[in-house]
Nucleic acid binder design. Sequence first.
DNA 1: CGTGGAGTTGAATACGATCAACACCGGTGG
DNA 2: CCACCGGTGTTGATCGTATTCAACTCCACG
Lengths: 190, 190
Amino acid sequence: MHSFLSLIAEEDVPQETIDDLKRKMVTRKVPKGHILLRKGDKNSKAYFVKSGCLRSYAIDEKDKEHIIMFAPEGWFISDIDTVANRNSAQLYIDAIEDSEVEILDSELINVFVASTPLALQKLNNRIAVLQKRIIMLMSATLQDRYIDFLETYPEIVQRVPQKMIASYLGVTPEALSKVRGELLKTKDEH
Amino acid sequence: MHSFLSLIAEEDVPQETIDDLKRKMVTRKVPKGHILLRKGDKNSKAYFVKSGCLRSYAIDEKDKEHIIMFAPEGWFISDIDTVANRNSAQLYIDAIEDSEVEILDSELINVFVASTPLALQKLNNRIAVLQKRIIMLMSATLQDRYIDFLETYPEIVQRVPQKMIASYLGVTPEALSKVRGELLKTKDEH
DNA sequence: CGTGGAGTTGAATACGATCAACACCGGTGG
DNA sequence: CCACCGGTGTTGATCGTATTCAACTCCACG
């Protein structure tokens, strides 16, 4: 079972800190489609996904959604900057499957960060992922980016509608559909 | 004068920690063009820029440079993920002006992170900046991205060659030049 | 059964890449 | 002092990739 506490169980965290976390942690069910965070919200929280799948995204001036990340079970998702600094949210977060999450407010996050290097590792890793994505957007064709996505997140491809993957890759659903058509064609040429 | 120690002077850091940092901090001059970090290097460090300007960048399979960030005086720059996790570097870092830097190895960074929330704020802010850039790459035209760059980093525009700004924006120098031409034209139409 | 959302396909269009030519310095060496 | 050179930036023509708009199929779900 995916849970925040089992995640840090192997870490060198004092029992009293664990007890503290256990007391303050809130678990919540989130039905598919439910929006947990909207741009402008002040109560920005982080979520650890126990089951299901969430996503975070921005909406631009032309009302287009741009998906920042997917979070299947075992992942954290948040508008990190606005949780930590208590600013109003920049992103939206919603459930793309019926899900169950554990809620971490900024106090709990501070405990998490202070008690194990794991939190810092996650932040560093997040930066590396974002940087790689920027380089891919700047240098790779859509086809290469799609193939990279398939290899990096094979489990997500199965669960998420194509138009959301297109949104993540930064292209229209039509463009992604055509690339998929080409890939099938070149694969059949054996 | 920009220095790491004056940066944390206002923070609530114990004197002994400051003394410790002061003892271990190394300052170094870096002439324009000198490369501090190459892809594959194992001795990845973070740098606080006292004067001058550095940049970090990736080189893709077609030998094209993609600039990740500029760091004028007062900024940190590093391949964060590889410093913290002691992996081999993914990025290059070099000086685009004669510069002076303070060197922070992973031990010093740990002290920094542990002694003040400032380090965490910087990481969170970095994530926010990277996310915004991804959204800009996915949704905005080159012209809008360039205008945004001008507004966000006016001091950098003055100091950095256009081809590097083009590299940061993810386009060819020719494309940026044409956008600049259009902007001048529409501005002259008064 | 229908109805609407998701995905596919095609035609026309827009935007940036590529390639090439050229202007404009800022050195450097004769 | 000037001639030369390489690097930077500009401009134009052509090409390629993704967007836009539209029509259509296929299901899942009422």
